[in-house]
Amino acid sequence: MKNFKFQISNFKIALFLSLCCAAAVLLYCSPSFAELTIKANHDHITIDFFYHGSTVSVSGISDPGTDLIVKIASPEGHQALRKKGKAGGVLWMNVGELKFEDMSNFYSLHSTGKPDEILNREEIDKYVIGYPAINRHAKISPVANEEEKNKWFDEFIKFKESSKLYSVSSGKISRTVKDGKQEYSIKLDWPYQAPPGDYIVTVYAVKDKKIVEKAETKVFVEQVGFVKTLFDMAKNKGALYGIISIVAAIGAGFGVGLIFGKGGGAH
């Protein structure tokens, strides 16, 4: 009986050792196991009266030698924009509405190299990296053909870039290797035009034209204090908000009238 117990415990030790060896071999053979980390130094942006945009630093650790892509985007959704065209072939005016589906209102992409040089097409499309990938991923309606879709997609990008809601850059991420690990960081201007909401910050580690790892964090933009009170009131208590706005305007008009009136008089 004793002999049998001894055999079982020996077997357990052997099993444990072999599992450890297998895990070590697996870890060693894995293409990237240096954990990819991401941190946004300013992950809660508060909007008060004096808010004029902010800066967000994204940093972390990755495997040495990997290329990196940092993407900040708002959740994908539906946007309707008015389009301008020539009415009667002569006059520029609004000629209808275009619906943009599966597109983010905010999209900011930064990479160590140009996406189409460091990634293959499948990966670019899978992770929606860069404007051409967004174009292939998004739906625009109503458009007659692919050519028209491309035209309005370009206009969409122009429109978003003009309000600083879309941006792409390459070569701005700094990388340093320390203790066998690669530290990366990028400092980004956060535009005041970006509305309150959740923004997903994703870093992709790229090796051999493939994404080998990704890590995520969030940036939360929120109105606070009186700015929030006014916004909520405008949205939820429209009648009261309207009356207050009118009374304040009439009061201000009379107030200024009285101040000036003291120095004036009838003619």
Binding site: L81, R82, K84, V90, L91, W152, E155, K158
Partner: peptide, 12 residues
């Protein structure tokens, strides 16, 4: 109305 606008899309 007659000159080409710089942006062909606007907020709805």
């Amino acid at each position: 109305l007659t000159l080409t606008p710089s942006l062909l899309l606007a907020q709805g």
